[in-house]
């Protein structure tokens, strides 16, 4: 299939129209284009890649179900994060009902043998843990803003809340992180 690279959002819209018409190749292309960011977001949220992969699979199943009714009012990526956010809330509710053993992150690959590299990696790891410890709304908002480059408006659509609510959560998340990271960050900087 010949899909121009120039405008990713326009490409997504065109692909979704094809998916709605039953085009399997277009569906495969959408999965290829978007699964990396979805997995990055969900893994950061849930802390376990295996669970993130299961939820990401379900995101694409639901996208396929919704394809005939999909209207390009928002970017496809925003729609995908919206589905992922809802599934993640279900997952958190499920965990709250049926607590499981804490899941561990897969060890990061990288060359951290040099001392300064290791220091940077350590501080980044501490940041990731501090982000994981944030309340769910704050964590989602800061991840979508800083990690996934969504605008406040897009985050509002993903989370189904107003822009001021998003800004409040981001503000609180930054305060929390500054507090949590205070000592280590002063050492680092």
């Amino acid at each position: 299939m010949d899909v121009p690279e120039s405008d990713p959002d326009a490409d997504d819209r065109r692909l979704m129209l094809l998916v709605a018409a039953g085009d399997g190749d277009a569906l495969r292309m959408i999965v290829e284009r978007h699964h990396g960011r979805l997995l990055g977001f969900l893994t950061s949220q849930l802390g376990a890649q295996a669970v993130a992969e299961e939820l990401a699979l379900e995101v694409f199943v639901r996208l396929h179900r919704a394809a005939p009714r999909w209207r390009p009012e928002a970017k496809l990526s925003t729609f995908l994060f919206h589905i992922a956010h809802n599934l993640m809330l279900n997952e958190h509710r499920r965990r709250a009902r049926k607590p499981t053993s804490p899941m561990e992150l897969a060890p990061e690959q990288g060359d951290d043998t040099h001392a300064s590299n290791r220091a940077v990696a350590d501080i980044q790891e501490a940041f990731l843990q501090a982000v994981e410890a944030l309340p769910e709304e704050q964590r989602t908002a800061i991840l979508l803003l800083v990690q996934q480059d969504l605008s406040y408006e897009e985050i509002g659509k993903v989370m189904n809340v107003s822009v001021p609510s998003v800004k409040t959560w981001v503000h609180r998340a930054r305060l929390q992180l500054r507090k949590a990271m205070g000592d280590e960050f002063r050492t680092f900087s």
């Binding site: 699964h35 990396g36 990055g40 950061s44 992969e53 790891e125 990731l128 990690q147």
Partner: peptide, 10 residues
């Protein structure tokens, strides 16, 4: 820190 996990291609 967060960008390290922006994308996770499997």
């Amino acid at each position: 820190a967060l960008r390290r996990r922006r994308e996770l291609t499997v």
